[in-house]
């Protein structure tokens, strides 16, 4: 399931719901992304997430379908927020449920790596020097490439 929303989410409720009633599920894996403030010269007082409505949902659905193709998942969930967020706020939740932990953990890792390079979101940070757009990181692309051979 895919959700793109301005509102916060309740991690416990979402994880409970993911596997509720499905007794084949032996494990639920999750990743929660938070707004980070590294302090010092890189102090971030807030960030604003912009996205491409329509394409965002399309790309997230494709990424989720790919994870379900690669691993035997009973359920999967991606929630990604947009709008203005402050340090400590939740940005993203990725969760996967599977009969076995290996599939749940690997699929969760795969989803967050792919999401970072393929989902059309952009972050702009509020800093003491003013607003600045976050630049894409080569490490994120490398992390995504790690999964390329597995398909």
């Amino acid at each position: 399931m895919i959700r793109v929303q301005r509102e916060d989410f309740d991690i416990g409720a979402e994880l409970d719901r993911l596997a509720a009633g499905d007794h084949r599920v032996g494990g639920v894996a999750s990743f929660v992304g938070l707004v980070r403030d590294m302090g010092g010269a890189n102090r971030v007082s807030a960030l604003t997430l912009e996205h491409y409505p329509g394409m965002t949902e399309k790309k997230l659905a494709e990424i989720e379908a790919e994870a379900n193709r690669r691993w035997p998942l009973a359920a999967s969930l991606i929630i990604h927020r947009y709008g203005r967020l402050e340090p400590g706020d939740r940005i993203v939740l990725v969760a996967t449920a599977s009969p076995h932990r290996e599939a749940a953990l690997a699929a969760c890792h795969f989803l967050i790596d792919w999401l970072k390079t393929d989902a059309p979101f952009w972050k702009s940070e509020e800093t003491p020097q003013g607003e600045r757009w976050v630049e894409a990181r080569a490490e994120d692309e490398a992390a995504r490439q790690r999964w390329s051979g597995g398909g």
Binding site: G33, H51, H80, V92, T117, W122, K123, W133, E135
Partner: peptide, 8 residues
Amino acid sequence: LFPPVTGG
């Protein structure tokens, strides 16, 4: 048209 994405 957009810059490289920075979500997640």
